[in-house]
């Protein structure tokens, strides 16, 4: 049956063929949507980001609004995920908590990507002692226990969102730098780089228009796995009490509080953890799908 299908697509009419090759983005998109797991991941990611971005509109209450007549409640119509020990609506707090998680997750990844791409690309493109110095720096940073560094940074500079973001990014850029370096090294020795040089392309043109687009696949995958890792790191900091200052809601803080009352009020743990799981799984599934999408060996 497979054979018949491929034959059919070969002899299919011209419009179809042209349509199919209309753009590589569309082709990639169709590969992504055909991958069930990646699609589910994308939907989960979309849901999480949607909740975080539109927290003001979606949430039924204000996040600091306490209701002392309804403490420690389970799910009900008025509080769909229940309330905490101060009677604050958990769904509302989760939405706002997602906001900080997403800011740290995406923001740290952005910092990571910028620094990682610059360091990795420079090291690979220049080679020689530049490569050596930069990569030894990367090794040095990678050899520190990253969680400890983040803790020290947050303790020193305060428990506010930008610091959390930097604290998470401070150590995780090294992985990105390594990925970028290996990709650039691979692409750099291809013949089309030589050909581009023979046409008079400058170094900058070669990096921007030849090397980066061809090195993109693994970098995109690394980004999609990096975001949940950053979220985990941020939640980890909160869990040990170094999260964002209250009353700003934070998923990690909520999980650590819920964990203390797990026997008496399990809903206070289930809500935040459930949403956090959705966020992490969503990005991981999506990352898996992207990896399949860019993997040329698994084409067809």
């Amino acid at each position: 049956m497979n054979r018949a299908m491929s034959l059919n697509s070969v002899i299919g009419n011209r419009e179809q063929l042209i349509g199919a090759r209309a753009s590589s983005w569309r082709r990639m998109w169709s590969r992504l949507t055909k991958n069930r797991k990646a699609l589910i991941g994308a939907i989960m990611v979309f849901l999480i980001v949607f909740l975080a971005v539109f927290a003001n509109w979606i949430s039924p209450y204000a996040y600091q609004q306490a209701d002392f007549t309804s403490l420690n409640q389970g799910p009900s119509l008025s509080h769909i995920l229940g309330t905490d020990s101060l009677g604050r609506d958990l769904f509302t707090r989760i939405n706002y908590g997602l906001r900080s998680v997403c800011i740290v997750g995406f923001g740290a990844e952005f910092v990571e990507l910028t620094v990682g791409v610059m360091v990795g690309a420079l090291a690979a493109y220049k080679g020689g002692w530049v490569d050596n110095v930069l990569m030894r720096l990367v090794d040095a940073v990678a050899s520190f226990p990253s969680f400890l560094i983040s803790m020290i940074l947050v303790t020193m500079m305060g428990r506010i969102l930008p610091v959390m973001l930097l604290a998470v990014a401070a150590t995780s850029w090294v992985g990105m730098a390594r990925v970028v370096r290996s990709q650039v090294l691979r692409v750099r020795q291809t013949e089309y780089i030589q050909a581009a040089r023979s046409m008079g392309a400058s170094s900058l043109t070669i990096i921007l228009r030849y090397i980066l687009p061809n090195a993109m696949g693994p970098i995109v995958v690394a980004v999609s796995f990096g975001i949940p890792a950053n979220m985990m790191a941020e939640a980890g900091l909160s869990l040990v009490g170094l999260g964002i200052n209250p009353p700003t809601p934070d998923l990690g803080v909520m999980i650590s509080e819920g964990q203390q009352s797990i026997m008496s009020y399990p809903w206070q743990l289930i809500g935040p953890v459930g949403v956090f799981i959705i966020a992490l799984l969503g990005f991981t599934f999506l990352g898996d799908g992207l990896r399949d999408m860019f993997d040329t060996r698994s084409r067809r």
């Binding site: 590589s24 291809t190 013949e191 089309y192 030589q194 050909a195 581009a196 023979s198 228009r209 030849y210 687009p213 061809n214 993109m216």
Partner: peptide, 12 residues
């Protein structure tokens, strides 16, 4: 060049 296939940028 010898190998036109690998001497062209595959992403463009």
């Amino acid at each position: 060049f010898q190998n036109a296939g690998s001497s062209m940028n595959p992403t463009k």
